[in-house]
Design a protein around this nucleic acid. Structure first.
Lengths: 230, 230
DNA sequence: GATACAATGATTGAATACAATATTTTATTT
DNA sequence: AAATAAAATATTGTATTCAATCATTGTATC
């Protein structure tokens, strides 16, 4: 996966996780100095991580202005979800052409994990839900496809962080179950349509409310505290 | 596209072009020092370019062992072509849902360019053939899809460099024409199947001959000069 | 003659240092 | 007080430096 230098990997990995888990929200500045201090590495090392994250679309790197967490527009958001539909449809079609037994076994094991932490550890639960989709892609045996799915799933997290109400858009566990069943039955059409519905429900909850909300910058936050003159 | 530092862009861009045009063949080492001298920049700058190319899959970066032009295995080669089929099918489907007029106009203009340099400037001709596919993706209006197609087309060039006989695998111009016609007719199924056939013909010419040839390293070359003891 | 070990040279890993560019603050003017 | 200009500060761009690792050659030992 990430083959580059030893020291920049932890930086890359932590930033990535923080962005996906929405601890670092879209638009937040990522100064090389402070990140370097946090990880006790030099800016050179931080920069490597940032260049890579920029290439993956999670970070936005602008000349002489440094890095910030990518802040997709509503158009890009739709684009990203559409791309995800395309890639995961491909995953479904490939999986249904394969021997379903080992695939279903692996998926059920993952589902058990998901169930275990549901309502117990929210952060972990959300992460596992995302990893279900990555597992699906990996089970196709295509590293390239798995990489693309991994990337697009991450970018979807970013989109949700930007546009969705808190907790409004999680994967439904029942839907994962249904997808597994369709694969077990070897029914490519049903699997693809289940997946489509599943992703669409996530997307809808996130993007249908057309309110392209303003960011929580200082003035917007303060605006809510202005006392109306009575 | 590439937003990062001014000085590393030319390095990135030149390396990329050299790899796509097969001037730099798969497996060739890319030492930071000598590349830096070539472009009169420091290793820091070169390294940035290499990290990015690694993220795009054109370069292979291994810890403490530096960079080399990516050298896909035959399995990865098939994977890459399969992925390309998936992405370009998506392009076809999207284009056929749109207003065909401006799309067909742009495509015909490009085709004229292709025709102009056919049998005149081979390098340019090959480049234009690749750019036809990238133009198709751009015309969908989705930057994300266009980026993915751009990337996968580049990686296909790499695959061809590795496995195809010289000049054996170029895009056929007539096939491009037929694709345009299908789009003009708004026939998504036909467009997708034309594209599938087109890509398959390129792939076949490249990958069907199962000889996974050895590389021209010193020992392989010398092996041919060993005088048999008589 | 083959293998293991040691020394050398070459190449990469990563921090520091300095230059260039943005951003913010302060000062000045209207 | 508002707008502009200038200075100061902070941040990024890139080269240089030193340390760490790898590859190769040479040497010794079995």
């Amino acid at each position: 996966m990430y083959k580059s230098s030893t020291r920049s990997f932890p930086v890359y990995d932590s930033l990535r996780k923080a962005i996906i888990e929405q601890a670092l929200k879209p638009g937040v500045k990522l100064p090389e100095d402070s990140i370097g201090e946090t990880f006790s590495v030099s800016r050179t090392t931080v920069r490597n991580a940032l260049v890579r994250l920029d290439a993956e679309g999670l970070v936005d790197l602008q000349p002489n202005r440094g890095a910030s967490v990518a802040d997709p527009t509503i158009e890009e958001a739709h684009d990203i979800f559409e791309m995800r539909q395309c890639l995961e449809r491909e995953v479904m079609q490939r999986l249904c052409k394969m021997d379903s037994k080992p695939i279903v076994k692996a998926l059920k094991a993952h589902l058990a994990e998901e169930q275990k932490y549901l309502d117990v550890d929210t952060t972990r639960s959300i992460r596992l839900a995302g990893e279900f989709h990555i597992l699906l892609a990996e089970l196709t045996g295509s590293k390239i496809l798995a990489n693309y799915v991994n990337e697009i799933v991450s970018r979807c997290s970013l989109v949700l962080a930007r546009f969705a109400q808190a907790h409004s858009a999680q994967c439904g566990l029942e839907e994962h179950t249904e997808i597994i069943e369709a694969i077990a039955a070897g029914d490519a059409d049903r699997a693809a349509s289940q997946m489509h519905t599943h992703l669409h429900s996530v997307q809808d909850r996130a993007l249908l409310n057309p309110e392209d909300e303003e960011k929580d910058n200082v003035s917007n936050i303060l605006a809510r505290y202005v006392t109306p003159d009575s």
